[in-house]
Simulated assay, not measured.
Amino acid sequence: MRFNVILSVTFLASFAAGLVIPSNEVESRGLEIRDGLIDDPVDSIVFKRDPKRTKAQKARTAAARTERIKKKGEKKASFQAAAKAHKKTTNLPARTSTFHVPAGGGKPAHTYTGKDVRKAVFDSHREAQRIKTLSKTQAKKSPLKSFSNHPHESPKPGGGAKPLPHMTVDKTKKHTQPGREFPLPNHHNPSTPSPARVITQKTKGGHYTFKGVISHDQSRTDKTKGAGYNDHFQVKERKRKGK
């Protein structure tokens, strides 16, 4: 009997010893288990909740959104006002017409279509709307300028005394106030000003009319300043035949 008990205890001890995992294996197996969890794309996802925003943060976000909506509305209203003014502008050239500025003083010639001129007139209306939101200092930097059709300092032989012979400027009368000039683009070098401008003037009815295109004489270089360097001359419209 005693022998059987001793045999049973010995057997159980041997069996239990077979179930024991060495410490070094426990560490390695634990590492494998952890690696398995990390590699699992589902089990390893950790969802983090965004921290609650304070009342001040919510107020700033709401104010910024309101300001964006306001600016978007102002931009839309400004565009619509410019489009309305352009639609009422009279005497615009045909889109197929051309306006040619001769080369001179080492500068290339410029040729503009009636479509280019129409776009510049529209851009002048847009700029007029933009200026309304600027300070006086900022407005002075605008490309939209006043045009009084002053006589030339140095007229060309056989040319008129003023840039636009059919434009009257009389500041004592409401409908003959100075016009507006706006630059046409420089196709050769967009980063520099073009010598040409479009001219519009307000009428009795309160809308604008296109008066013509003017340009500097490019043959008059810096060396000729004081002798009509800043004079502007009319660039005549060349209408397409049959149009």
Rank of each mutant, 00 (worst) to 15 (best):
K107S: 14
G104D: 13
K70R: 14
K70N: 09
R68T: 02
K75P: 00
F147G: 15
R130H: 12
R118F: 14
Q80T: 11
P143S: 03
K132T: 06
H150E: 10
A81Y: 02
S78L: 04
L134T: 05
A56T: 07
A59L: 15
Q129W: 04
A83P: 10
E153N: 13
K72L: 02
S124Y: 06
G158A: 05
N149R: 09
T96K: 04
E67A: 06
A59P: 00
H100R: 09
K87H: 07
Q138T: 06
S78F: 02
P108D: 00
A56L: 03
S135I: 03
V117C: 09
P93C: 01
K140S: 14
P155M: 07
P93M: 05
G105H: 04
E67K: 00
G159H: 11
K132D: 13
G104T: 03
K145T: 15
I69G: 01
R130Q: 07
G158L: 02
L134R: 10
A56V: 13
I69Y: 07
A120E: 04
A62M: 05
F79E: 04
E67H: 03
T96C: 15
P155V: 01
P102Q: 03
L134I: 02
S146M: 08
A77I: 01
Q138G: 14
P155Y: 02
H100I: 05
H150G: 05
F99R: 01
I69N: 05
D116C: 10
T66N: 06
D116P: 12
L144S: 14
P108V: 00
A103K: 13
R130N: 11
T66H: 09
G114C: 03
H86M: 12
F122G: 06
A94W: 01
G160E: 02
P102S: 13
A109W: 00
R118V: 11
T113L: 02
A62H: 01
P108I: 00
G160H: 15
L134G: 13
A120F: 14
R95A: 11
H100V: 01
K70Q: 10
P155W: 03
K70C: 08
T137V: 08
K75V: 11
K87F: 05
T96F: 10
V121G: 08
T66Q: 12
S146V: 12
A56G: 12
F147A: 14
I69R: 05
P93W: 07
Q80D: 12
E153H: 13
K140R: 09
A109E: 15
Q57Y: 05
K71A: 06
T133M: 08
A64E: 05
S146N: 09
L144Q: 09
G158C: 08
G159L: 00
T61P: 15
T61V: 07
F99A: 01
H152N: 08
